[in-house]
């Protein structure tokens, strides 16, 4: 990429000013959030969870080029891990960080379990099998009453607490989320630029050629599924800890689709794009709340228009975090 970049000085001034403005706005929002009413903080927390989910799913879709429509299954795995290990359901009350680790591991395991049988499938067939997998997980959770409480779900989950500090109020959850989202985003961004990330890119562009130059496509794909699934699972733990209630209703196919849309509308394969996409698809309906159903209609039409006029997303792949950093600090 960097070989074909034009020097920053040669770009028109507006090219640097717009990202700068958007970035300043984002920082201002993040700083202002703790002072907002609880309801608003909850909305921002929801947004951060979706950004986390988007970053996770983007590894499979945006980096490795595999369409996964059952991502919500991993989200559910994480949420139910927390619900079962930190609630009166089985009277287990493990510490939050331990559950986070267990959930990340379980998510990874589920990701690999789903990954192994579908490795040979491509494109649409992969999308459909993952979709079926997600639905199966949801239906099972809805019906294994002795384990998951069925449609009623599991309530009265423990408050999250890390080293004796409790995270229960929306503000507290907000700070917890901020740390986790930022850490995951940086890790995933570094991963994209590592040798594994380049293997993913090669698979995305041409799987046969990737195999031809000696990339172990099986391992690289499994790594993508595993990483993505464990991030989804982590998001599920935080979701469960912030709601302190889980039920199968939160893990429908529509959620998976929403996350895919966030990625594509925002900018596929680009973490900055996911932030933009999530902001539009999650915050816009909240901002337009008074327009009731009209806002959903507007959202649907906006989606079509955006995909037609900006097929690469609002923030295209070429404008990654590195460009932003360079734009902000001159070089």
């Amino acid at each position: 990429m960097s070989a074909v970049d034009t020097p920053a000085a040669a770009e028109p001034r507006t090219r640097r000013i717009i990202p700068l403005l958007v970035f300043a706005l984002a920082v201002a929002l993040l700083v202002a959030t703790p002072f907002l009413p609880n309801y608003h903080i909850r909305v921002i927390n929801g947004l951060l969870i979706y950004i986390l989910l988007g970053i996770g799913l983007n590894i499979v879709i945006g980096y490795a080029g595999l369409l996964d429509l059952g991502f919500v299954a991993f989200y559910a795995v994480g949420a139910y891990t927390y619900a079962l290990l930190a609630s009166p359901q089985f009277d287990l009350h493990l510490p939050f960080l331990l559950i986070l680790l267990i959930a990340a591991f379980l998510g990874m395991l589920t990701g690999i379990l789903l990954g192994i049988p579908v490795l040979k499938l491509r494109g649409d067939y992969l999308a459909i099998v993952t979709l079926g997998f997600g639905e199966i997980i949801r239906i099972v959770m809805n019906n294994v009453d002795w384990l998951t409480g069925g449609p009623q779900g599991i309530a009265r989950l423990d408050k999250a607490s890390v080293f004796g500090i409790e995270f229960a109020r929306p503000v507290e959850i907000y700070f917890l989320l901020l740390v986790i989202v930022f850490t995951v985003a940086v890790l995933v961004w570094r991963m994209e630029r590592s040798i594994l990330g380049k293997a993913w890119a090669a698979i995305r562009e041409d799987q046969d050629a990737a195999r031809g130059i000696g990339i172990n496509t099986t391992n690289a794909k499994l790594a993508a599924f595993a990483t993505s699934a464990s991030i989804g699972s982590i998001a599920g733990v935080i979701f469960a800890a912030s709601q302190r209630f889980v039920s199968p209703e939160s893990f429908t196919l529509q959620e998976s689709v929403l996350i895919v849309l966030m990625i594509v509308v925002g900018g596929i394969g680009n973490i900055l794009g996911i932030v933009a996409g999530a902001t539009i698809l999650i915050l816009l309906p909240e901002v337009l709340r008074e327009f009731a159903e009209w806002r959903i209609l507007f959202l649907g039409l906006l989606m079509i228009v955006l995909i037609i006029i900006r097929p690469a997303g609002i923030v295209p792949r070429s404008f990654g975090p590195d460009k932003l950093i360079r734009g902000l600090f001159g070089k």
């Binding site: 849309l261 594509v264 209609l297 649907g300 906006l302 989606m303 079509i304 995909i307 037609i308 097929p311």
Partner: peptide, 13 residues
């Protein structure tokens, strides 16, 4: 992927 996602928008609308 683009027309598939566009169809999701159509469905929602």
């Amino acid at each position: 992927l683009a027309p598939m996602l566009s169809s999701l928008g159509v469905s929602l609308s």
